[in-house]
Write a protein that binds this DNA or RNA. Sequence first.
RNA 1: GGCCCCGUGGUGUAGUGGACUAACAUGCCACCCUGUCACGGUGGAGAUCGGGGGUUCGAAUCCCCCCGGGGUCGCCA
Length: 600
Amino acid sequence: MILLKSHSCGELRKKHVGANVDLAGWVDRRRDHGRLIFIDLRDRGGIVQVVFNPEVSKSCHEIASEMRSEYVVRVSGEVAPRPPGTENPKLPTGDVEVIIDNTEILNTSKTPPFYINEDTEVEESLRLKYRYLDLRRARMKRNLLLRHQIVKFMRDFLDAQGFIEVETPILIKSTPEGARDYLVPSRLYPGKFYALPQSPQQLKQLLMVAGVEKYFQIAKCFRDEDTRADRQPEFTQLDLEMSFIEEEDILNLLEGLFASMVETVKPEMRMIKPFPRLTYAEAMEHYGTDKPDLRFGMEIRDLSDIVAQSDFSIFRSAIAEGGKVKGICAPGCASYTRHQLDELNKLVQNLGAKGLVTIILGTSGGSINDLTLEMVKSVATKFITLDHIKQMAECLGANMGDLLLIIAGKPKIVDMVLDELRREMGHRLKLADPNVLAFAFIVDFPLLARNEEMGQWESMHHPFTAPRDEDVSLLDVAPEKVRGKHYDMVCNGCEIAGGSIRIHTSHLQRKIFKLLGYNDDEIEERFGHLLEAFDYGAPPHGGVAPGIDRIVMLMAGEETIREVIAFPKTQSATDLTVNAPSSVAEEQLAELHLLLREES
RNA sequence: GGCCCCGUGGUGUAGUGGACUAACAUGCCACCCUGUCACGGUGGAGAUCGGGGGUUCGAAUCCCCCCGGGGUCGCCA
């Protein structure tokens, strides 16, 4: 026998009754009744109950009494209908069972360090150390399968649209202006290094010059920066690029791809269609972030004009110093206790705000017109008139019984803190439906942002992003006003994709590099290959790169991308499964011409 | 680099200065059990409470340092 299995455990149904089957898998659970032993046998396809009856086979029954959790076993027998009344509706295979007349233990197993057969919380470091066991669990198996289905859909979809998949190198050239690079020392060239790609950006643009026209790749990207729930040192992007297109083409492609992918792979999840489009300015104004969670409202409103003339020094001084006063309305939260308000205050202070002004609007429902000063609970009542409070409540769309949360300070801090508060309150009030994927496009980004520390212009996206045609003339006089042909796709508060129409002439590209502070030598050394390529008939082109880990995370309903990566790294960038990074032998270092520095 | 949370039998939790000789569930081991499916029953083994130091008559519990995991700000063109 070459194959140990004639069927998968999970596929057996009533129609198989009478068939002799060969199965193999892991012991999920054992129920030993003394004479009769039931084993739930598990393989990738599912679980089926197999029965060891000493009256059928005494030797099989003896072997089965030795079986324990996670033993690897092979069984053969006849598929039988379960006796009436003993069917198990919880199992897809619950109408049948396999009466075993031949079996073998292929391998034993130690008692696993955590439950494989139960969906209980286990400390993540333990799961990662024994990731191969963790991946046996239903949740991880489901996530791996979903990821496969998503990636397969992407490949099929893009193939049907005429894209071709091209691989680009993993050993490329360091580009220190972006994220920190992962470096690979060169054995053949002492003192020189390759870098792992932060993204295949320049290579895919060269593929456009090469006439590929429609390219994509499931691309591993590497960035040596600190991790987050949605950020890993290495991650996967659906990298794609097209020639002879404009921004609208990319957005249409994305919407078509993601909408049909969700409808195919996760039909139970809902979307807002067509995907809403917000300008960067609108997103920042109403959500305080360029990646808003649009599953709920609770929009931020600017209250500066209302309170500018008030006697409340916190508000007045913030505005006088060039700051803003903005707030949100937490519906129905007037009953918040002192303790809960203190908690929120602590939250905003940890984020860098000076404090949180809370205004409780009465205790029961009703029209805000009936509000009296006695019904308002807030430190602000001493300094702010009832009229101002009513105006703020109206501006925030508040009703009686609601809680206003107001932050004053520098615009950047105010936005960041209110974004956090909005998401926190949305979470507490369960406003974000987990079965909704609220995709949206963010457009009209500024091309450049001022780096205050360095006193220099930096690319908002990357230096290859084309400025809007009508703004090109502003590059010389007012760079901050130049809008880029840059777009993001966001979903549920997560940046899912970023892309742009690229510069495709060396003249304009050089101009941008110079604006970013590079001199001619630096431009030549770092980007000479790209600029030269542009002089050989580079077509207009643009593209986008959706993060695969993130979209799988959202579709799997997970909180971190580690749950959808087979072997993820910890927050401190270690791999607990294989214990990486690790020391290397002195001989390896010597071969690479490396000497370790003494760190103080 | 900053701030915050977590670490108690194999696993998940309870215990927040004395009654803890550390509890509960589950897992594990042994025996019993022919229809269970998170099988059931009886019995048993198993943690000096992440590590180190300190305070105290007394520390799982309070303080300090360290280690590990997580969240986040900075960082992520």
